[in-house]
Design a protein around this nucleic acid. Structure first.
Lengths: 338, 338
DNA sequence: GCAATTTGAACAATCGTTTGCGCATATTTT
DNA sequence: AAAATATGCGCAAACGATTGTTCAAATTGC
């Protein structure tokens, strides 16, 4: 703590006015309480001269408002989430909120603990990428009056607002692309199974396969990690009949997959085609520029913030559950076969 | 804010004890103040039953301790900084601190404003990657008693603690590597010129060139961005006599460089060799796996946190200015010529 | 059995702001 | 010139926790 912090009282003394008046001027309520221009000026001058910074804690204690929002994501190390964090951080700052970013590390217990901490900090709102399939602790916060919005992952049939990608469509697009290029033996490497995006992507994949008369779809994996992508691909390559195409459900999985392919000296797209969920600048410069389903990260973040702010301002929002359409970015990782 | 928050007073009422006693028990000072086991138990039970969470604001107002640290980085979107943020976040949490991550967006004015905000939040310590060459505002905070440590970028000849990479050595290693492979026309694309890491990297580059009798070194660029890397490379390729090797001073610059090279259909390393500062998982899967100077991100973060905690605990630290040795990761982006 | 000590806990001030209410003075109205 | 209204500002009580000090009751010592 910076010692000798100067308070509203110091300004009051120096100006010969009361803390009440100082507070009002500094909060822009001067007009409302008819403080004379002269006093206003004096107070502002002295405040500047003394380098006054209000003690948020005191103000917050009094008002119950913290000016703080919380963002909980599964991992800052995942570029997808880092991007979201960055966007939300700046977006919230525009509305004069400070964001506390927490990393649940894909662990529901950690998530709960962080949430506790955050509550103690009197957060005014929460944006969360829930990392488990339990929703009670989140729902209960909402019921206590805390504005909450889920992003990326969410809970269906629950009235917690969310903003996410239309994962079903995204996966369908990717799968269709593969099929149209003649692929039929397609393996999908998935992430956390119970997560809504994963479920919907899988559904999109399955439905599209089925519609094309391709029943033999194979789905493997269980985590949105590099590790998972690597291991599953390794296993995949052991099979007698390898797939001709792989659809990875995240950029992290894709990276793991690529590592395995590289080790086994399998070329994309000549030996195997690849498409993934999530875009990333690097994807353009890979051995084979990777085709992907790009999520509207920026829009997701902005809408989520908007929801939160509206809730706080008690504005009515018609819809608060939004799915944004992803775009497919074709690069060179899919080979036309047959 | 969650309404109907229960306070220490509620517990006091329900147990028939005073807030004093409740506070002491809940803060683990029961023994010190000889609170009976029975009372302790009762208080803890009721606290749990009521789902009590302390109001940090009240506590902090009283104690002046906020349990909050600040981290200011130039951009969460840069994977290098995102990695640092992630590490520091979890590291500080281990010591029971909440971290507020701020994004200065490479803008000194923004940095100053954020700092103001953070001061108002009574942060107990600051880890910062300063984004300008002004240090007064940071130094002044330190002089007011705020523990500060710079990471990555820092100020020489100032007694602000810092943890960074030995950039001079890193750049020397990279340059030497290039020279040993027969390169003499080497262009270095730098980042923010006044930043200490950049200056030292440039110095390492220059000295190594000079030592090898290569005086004609060319240095271009002025920002740690994708843009900068792209534009400078574009310009580079216009020259009559192109360099045989490029040394980019960050991963973002490298990406921009690669984009330009790709557009002009220049192959790495056949047409031009490339090495960059900063590692990233993706580097392994690029068209040409990119050789790099990897910074010890994890160690930097951990040491920075350690410094901060020591300062707060008023422990003496012998040295508080540390440069960590980077490692060179050879992949396939350097061609032996001549 | 009375003083001395220990045990267990409460009083009340405090941190820096905000805010409902109140109260002089100054100005205008009639 | 008295009444009504407007202007400019301050009092003092919160907010919820922490803490130096005090104090009664229980226990011990002699």
């Amino acid at each position: 703590m910076v010692k000798q912090k100067i308070s509203i009282t110091d300004i009051a003394e120096k100006t010969g006015l009361s803390t009440t008046t100082v507070s009002r001027v500094l909060n822009g309520k001067a007009e409302q309480y008819r403080i004379s221009k002269k006093s206003q000026q004096k107070i502002k001058e002295v405040a500047k001269e003394l380098h006054y910074t209000p003690n948020q804690f005191a103000a917050n204690l009094r008002t119950g408002k913290s000016g703080t929002m919380a963002l909980i994501i599964p991992s800052l190390n995942n570029p997808f989430f880092a991007g979201i964090a960055s966007e939300i951080n700046t977006e919230l700052r525009k509305s004069n909120y400070t964001t506390i970013i927490s990393d649940s590390d894909e662990n529901p217990e950690t998530e709960k603990m962080e949430l506790q901490q955050l509550i103690a900090r009197n957060i005014e709102g929460l944006i969360i990428v829930p990392c488990g399939n339990e929703w009670e602790h989140i729902k209960s916060l909402q019921e206590q009056g805390l504005p909450v919005v889920c992003i990326d992952r969410y809970f269906e049939n629950l009235d917690i607002p969310f903003v996410s990608t239309d994962n079903y469509t995204g996966a369908s697009m990717a799968t269709k692309q593969l099929i149209e290029n003649g692929h039929s033996r397609i393996t999908c490497i998935q992430g956390v199974q119970h997560s809504t995006p994963n479920k919907l992507r899988i559904k999109g994949f399955r439905d599209t396969m089925k519609k094309a008369g391709l029943e033999s779809e194979s789905i493997v994996g269980d985590d949105f990690t590099f590790q998972n992508g690597y291991l599953e691909t390794k296993l995949l390559l052991q099979q007698k009949e390898r797939p001709t195409a792989v659809f990875t459900l995240s950029n992290t999985i894709a990276m793991g997959c690529m590592k395995a392919l590289k080790e086994e000296n399998i070329k994309v797209p000549d030996d195997i085609s690849l498409i993934t969920f999530d875009d990333h600048p690097y994807l353009d410069y890979l051995v084979t520029p990777l085709s992907c389903i790009a999520q509207p990260v920026s829009d997701i973040s902005k809408i989520a913030v908007k929801f939160l702010i509206s809730k706080i301002n008690k504005q009515e929002v018609k819809t608060s559950q939004v799915l944004l359409r992803p775009t497919i970015k074709m690069r060179d990782s899919i080979k036309r076969i047959n």
